[in-house]
Amino acid sequence: MSATGSDAIREPALVRYSAIAVAIAFLGLSVVVPLASVLVQAFGQGAGRFLAALREPETWAAIRLTLLTAAISVPLNTAFGVAAAWLIARYDFRGKGVLTTLIDLPFSISPVIAGLIFVLLFGRQGLFGPLLEAHDVQIIFAVPGIVLATTFVTLPFVAREVLPLMQSQGSNEEEAALTLGASGWQVFFRVTLPKIRFGLVTGVILCNARAMGEFGAVSVVSGHVRGLTNTMPLQVEILYNEYNLVGAFSVASLLTLLAMVTLVAKKLLERSKAVRR
């Protein structure tokens, strides 16, 4: 091992090794052990049990609903995130600070409260409850509620990744493109999009991971109707509470795989971003 910095400001080897050992032990206990336990529990009784668990119709329905939810929420938030980042990075206007705070808000709200606000809005006793009931539209305890809650929770992800990038890059290249005769959309697709692509993809990946993994908010609005309004994380909870550990951990291991793929992709993107610079 080695340390950065010159010899004069390097800690003694014993200190360095101890620090590394403690860091590894801490992360090992708090992160690696739980992670490993998911995989062991899922595959411990053989891949056959794992695959059978995933083939249960209710689990299969949960997987489909999760994919559907992400397929709606992620593109919406991507479009929103890019538009919001462009707006905040490129223009000065009054109310910008408030707008930025509002966009970040879903990050600082408990997922449970995120679910609650949609129940208060569209639930039977909610603000629009009577109206929705009169037209026989169900949002809460149904798929639209799950999509809404998921979109709310993941709203800031893309904007958060793209905004700092746009701010640090400035708009010189966009201005140059305009003087060369490019139209607004040409500027966006030929100059801006290539400039932000790594950040944008990172944002989309993180947004997707959260959209597929969201539990608290979705739990509140879903109503847990088996085979209909259960997403994968909710299915994990149900199977776990029924002591179907293989089933629960099989679904959980799929979500773990998603998380690991997300992390690896994020790291690779960060590296190519660094190389680019």
Partner: peptide, 15 residues
């Protein structure tokens, strides 16, 4: 975009 001016930017602003 309709002015037809050629601009060399400070720091060049190359793509």
């Amino acid at each position: 975009r309709e002015r037809g001016v050629g601009v060399v930017f400070q720091g060049y602003a190359l793509f």
